[in-house]
Simulated assay, not measured.
Amino acid sequence: MPPAPTDADWMAAAVALSQRGRPTAAPNPNVGCLIVQRGRVVARGWTQPGGRPHAEAMALAAAGDAARGATAYVSLEPCAHASPRGPCCTDALIAAGVARVVVAAIDPDPRTDGQGTARLRAAGIAVGTGVLADAARAAMAPWWTRQTRGAPFVTLKLATSLDGCIALADGSSRWITGERARAHGHLERARHEAILVGRGTLLADAPRLDVRLPGLEARSPKKLLLTRGGTAPEGWTAVASPESVAGVDSLLVEGGARAASAFLAADRVDRLLLYRAPILIGGGKAALGDIGLADLAAAHGRWSLVDSRLLGSDRLDVYERIRKE
């Protein structure tokens, strides 16, 4: 017989579930919850659009009486504060009669921050914490970044040739990458609340910036325009600088070189998607301009490779900014 699933196995499933709420759970965190009774999942939940119901509330409602004596696996500490929008998840777990709660990450929100687990223990419920905490924080990176740093989580997308060009010298840029890479780019759009380009890209390409994947069309993000002029077309929102982006947890910066360079110079990029096509352009437009680097030594130790894969004939490398919290 195969070995029984461990707490880490169950939590991995809860963290995966949490991704279903990204980015629609905003402004709340996207959380996943499993209710397990005698080695069997009896219910699952994830934060619903707009932030309610919470993952625990959704799972407990589905479990009903089967939650009594069960173990709940939650990717973020259950909330401990009252809200007019819905029940306190800590109290809901206590009322449901669960025997054990396993938590990945402790909630940094000062209204909970350890109080949820303390209340569960005070009610006689066994509590475990820190199981796959890093994975849980990564899954809710946009909310976590806003909560802890007061800024949106920014992903920069660059689609280049092997020699680092994003277009021919005359600006022609459709299409550098192939169909699979472009589909992956649309999936990334669906995972972000907002998408941004510079005015040069707007004028040159008139981009739609929507999601063109079957079933995900409604996930098209808000459109932002980085512009010093302060005006934007209908349906767009103008932002004057990388620091002035507000009101969203996650932002995808998609073009062009000036916008990308501005966000890198301001150290506002948390994640880098580098799509590279197996072509050489030579003499084309560079992916980046000046990013304020004065010393080559300062360029090292800033980025960590977290994923690399082939998308058809194109390669995707994903890097995350190394930050000392």
Rank of each mutant, 00 (worst) to 15 (best):
R121Q: 15
R121D: 02
A122N: 09
A123C: 08
A123K: 10
A123R: 10
G124N: 09
G124V: 02
G124M: 05
G124R: 06
G124C: 06
I125V: 14
A126C: 08
A126P: 02
A126R: 15
G128F: 09
T129R: 12
G130V: 05
G130P: 02
G130K: 05
L132F: 01
L132D: 00
A133W: 07
D134V: 12
D134R: 15
A135L: 07
A136V: 04
A136C: 01
R137Q: 13
R137P: 00
A138N: 09
A139E: 01
A139T: 03
M140D: 09
M140R: 13
A141L: 07
A141P: 03
A141Y: 03
P142W: 04
P142E: 05
W143A: 05
W144D: 03
T145W: 04
Q147P: 02
R149C: 08
R149P: 00
G150F: 00
A151L: 14
A151G: 07
A151C: 12
P152L: 05
F153I: 01
F153P: 02
V154D: 00
V154Q: 01
V154W: 03
T155K: 11
T155Q: 11
L156I: 03
A159T: 09
T160I: 09
T160K: 12
S161H: 02
L162K: 10
L162V: 07
L162A: 12
C165Y: 11
I166S: 05
A167M: 04
A167L: 06
L168C: 10
L168M: 13
A169P: 03
A169T: 10
D170W: 06
D170F: 08
G171I: 03
G171P: 01
S172I: 14
S173V: 07
W175I: 11
I176V: 13
T177P: 06
E179A: 14
E179C: 12
E179N: 13
A181D: 01
R182G: 05
A183C: 10
A183G: 07
A183M: 11
H184E: 15
G185L: 00
H186K: 07
E188Q: 13
E188V: 15
E188G: 11
E188H: 13
R189T: 04
A190Q: 05
A190N: 04
R191E: 12
E193Y: 10
E193P: 02
A194G: 00
A194T: 04
I195P: 03
I195F: 00
I195E: 10
L196C: 07
L196A: 09
G198R: 03
R199H: 08
G200A: 15
T201S: 12
T201P: 01
T201Y: 01
D205M: 06
A206I: 07
A206Y: 10
P207Q: 06
P207L: 09
P207R: 08
R208V: 12
R208H: 13
R208G: 13
L209G: 04
L209S: 07
D210E: 11
P214W: 09
P214T: 11
G215F: 00
L216N: 06
E217T: 10
E217C: 06
A218M: 09
A218H: 14
R219P: 00
R219M: 12
